[in-house]
Amino acid sequence: MLIHPWDAARDTAEWQDWLAAHDFGQLAVNGLPGEPPFVQPMHFAYDPSPGGPFGEVLAHLARPNPLWPALDANPEVLLSVVDDYAFVPGPWQAPPGAPPEHGTPTSVYAAVQLRCTAHVVDDPEEKATLLNRQVGHFQPPGLSETVAVGEAPYGRLLSGIRGMRLEVTDVRAKFKYAGHKPEEVQDRIAKGLADRGGLRDAAALAVQQRRRQEA
């Protein structure tokens, strides 16, 4: 992923705060010899607090998932999260004083890539603890029963999954929102997103405006 200086996260807090609100991504696992990589869409819970500068990711997948042999062979993986994206038509990006048709179409988006070392969790007690932490991220307290080994309603299901602790070893974060463009162009993009009101335009506009205010 190419990251220009104006697209880079300003500090660790920026990408961590963004990731706290974006918890669905794609896990890329190196394939076995002669096979392409596995790419697994999944929900996850990011925890910035464990040891190391980047924290860890908690997730689980079904035991029959075909990626496990590849993960066991090579635990170095990449978790990719992309959101708050929108298409920007060319006229919105036209240089000041230039005809609208001279503008170049582009995309705006936020992307965080976490390089991780995967630790597979198979011990039932450890899996229960991992699931409680992960589910606790998504569901309000009291909405579901605590996972406990051998106890209903989830204890009997533990054998059907494997847990993952992804130890984050490196991070690449990009916030591509035309931060290097003249103010006139940035204003035009902001107005275009607000006026168009597409499915993801409001989220993209919010990130663009936040980064402009923090510049």
Rank of each mutant, 00 (worst) to 15 (best):
T146S: 12
P100G: 02
L78H: 03
P140R: 15
L58N: 06
H119K: 15
R115F: 13
H119Q: 15
L114E: 03
Q93I: 00
P95L: 00
P141R: 08
L67C: 10
L114W: 01
D123F: 08
Y46P: 06
T106M: 02
Q139K: 13
E151M: 10
V135F: 14
F54K: 02
G155P: 10
P153F: 15
V112G: 10
P64W: 05
N74Y: 03
V112K: 06
F54W: 11
G136Q: 12
W68G: 08
S107M: 14
A110C: 07
P69I: 09
A59C: 09
L61R: 10
H43E: 06
V121Q: 05
G90N: 07
P50R: 05
V120R: 15
V57S: 11
P91G: 00
A59W: 08
A128Q: 05
G160A: 11
P124C: 11
R115K: 14
G103R: 01
A62T: 13
Y85V: 00
V112C: 08
W92L: 06
P89F: 01
A152L: 14
R63A: 15
R133F: 08
Y46K: 05
E151K: 14
S144R: 13
P140D: 14
T106S: 10
V57A: 12
V121Y: 09
L143C: 12
W68M: 07
A152I: 08
Q139W: 06
G136D: 13
D122Q: 14
T129E: 15
R133V: 11
H119G: 12
A111E: 12
A98F: 04
Y109S: 06
Y46Q: 06
T106Q: 00
G150W: 14
A62I: 10
M42W: 07
V81Q: 01
V108S: 07
A110D: 07
G136F: 14
L158C: 01
V112Y: 08
C116W: 05
P96V: 04
G155L: 11
G160H: 07
G103C: 04
D123C: 03
P153W: 15
V135D: 02
P50Y: 11
G155N: 10
T106A: 00
L130W: 11
R115I: 03
D72A: 15
D47P: 02
A110H: 05
K127C: 04
A73W: 03
P141C: 07
D83Y: 00
P50C: 09
A86Q: 04
G52A: 05
